[in-house]
């Protein structure tokens, strides 16, 4: 089996994450434990080899924190909306499957957008078309074409946030150009 060598820089986020999980599970962030965790992380990453995730090499912490806050607020709001929908609409609820073409063509961005959408109540990714990077989103309570437009706008807004957090420079530039241009849905 021929393995593509991956640089340490590419592997670093994975290793850091593994060390954090290790220390969190032990509830012990002392240097010795961190060192031992790092050792285990390297062994695990070498022995149980996975294809490397291609990161863009850009990560904005302030944007990430802002996005996390917005995400939590969305989850909170939408959880109660779905609760209300279950109690009051119940069997009369009408749904839709909406095709949303995304801007980015990187696997990571498409996956992350789909993941976030599935976590926020009221939307669920049913199918992904990787060649055109289109998400097929099943959404709760869609009655009018205006609702469909709203779903499409929300999905693209989520993707825009993720691009701001960790998209590549070209994606970010494209996003900037778009918002200067004006009212893109």
């Amino acid at each position: 089996m021929i393995r593509k060598r991956i640089s340490l820089r590419q592997e670093l986020p994975l290793l850091v994450w593994l060390v954090v999980v290790w220390a969190a599970l032990w509830q012990d962030f002392s240097p010795g434990n961190l060192l031992f965790g790092a050792l285990i992380a390297v062994v695990v990453a070498r022995v149980f080899y996975l294809p490397p995730v291609e990161l863009s090499g850009r990560f904005s912490l302030p944007q990430a924190l802002l996005f996390a806050a917005i995400f939590l607020w969305d989850v909170l709001l939408a959880s109660f909306q779905v609760f209300g929908r279950a109690v009051f609409s119940g069997p009369r609820v009408r749904n839709a499957i909406v095709a949303v073409p995304l801007r980015s063509h990187s696997d990571l961005m498409v996956t992350a957008t789909g993941h976030v959408l599935s976590l926020v109540p009221g939307s669920l990714v049913v199918e992904v078309d990787r060649s055109t990077s289109t998400l097929y989103v099943h959404a709760l309570h869609v009655a009018t074409p205006a609702d469909v437009q709203r779903i499409r706008r929300d999905v693209r807004r989520t993707e825009a946030w993720l691009i701001r957090v960790m998209g590549s420079k070209t994606e970010l530039a494209a996003l900037r150009g778009e918002s200067v241009k004006g009212t893109e849905p």
Partner: peptide, 22 residues
């Protein structure tokens, strides 16, 4: 409640999986 009241599988999924996150 969502599992009991929603009419089809996909709308039940909205109710079933998401409120658990919160």
């Amino acid at each position: 409640i969502g599992l009991l009241r929603f009419p089809d599988l996909l709308s039940r999924m909205h109710a079933a999986t998401k409120p658990q996150v919160l």
